[in-house]
């Protein structure tokens, strides 16, 4: 049994040691906004915030979370920066298939929390999530938009 702090709430989960946080979220807690894409920290679809920093939850064993605060896409708009990011995503009509976009929104939120006025290079290095639909330019524009808002 592990006690996690997710979106400000304490959640007890009865899972094996070694279970990636991603599957605790999706299958144990039914929070399916966070996506599984690769399972090896390559695609970023599973990105959540851990104490405000972007974390690929597929490579984060549940026991490593400890008392850290986890924020998922389900609660991202409760955060001021996250709210601006989602608004910019909608205004910029960013998603295509949308499957990568939860992770993109979380990565953008983390980036802007750390770097409120990101340069193009900051976006390039801070947003390494894959998008098979090729929305990279729309994402970069939305990040800049959210930074301005």
């Amino acid at each position: 049994m592990f006690t996690l702090t997710i979106n400000g709430e304490a959640r007890d989960v009865d899972v094996d040691e070694g279970t990636p946080l991603l599957f605790v979220l999706r299958d144990t807690l039914g929070m399916t906004g966070t996506k599984y894409g690769c399972g090896i920290a390559q695609c970023g679809a599973c990105t959540v915030l851990m104490d405000g920093a972007a974390m690929r939850s597929c490579q984060l064993p549940v026991e490593a979370v400890g008392p850290s605060e986890i924020t998922t896409i389900e609660a991202v708009e409760a955060d001021d920066v996250g709210k601006r990011v989602v608004a910019a995503w909608i205004e910029g009509q960013v998603p295509q298939c949308g499957y990568c976009q939860s992770g993109q929104v979380m990565a953008a939120t983390a980036l802007l929390k750390q770097t409120p006025e990101p340069s193009d290079d900051d976006i390039l290095y801070g947003m390494s999530n894959l998008c098979r639909c090729g929305t990279y330019n729309a994402i970069a524009a939305a990040v800049r938009q959210a930074a301005k808002a």
Partner: peptide, 17 residues
């Protein structure tokens, strides 16, 4: 697009969800 808001909020449901 009618699906963009849900997709930006992680609310879109795919088969895997």
């Amino acid at each position: 697009r009618i699906d963009v808001a849900d997709k930006s909020r992680g609310l879109a449901k795919y088969t895997i969800d």
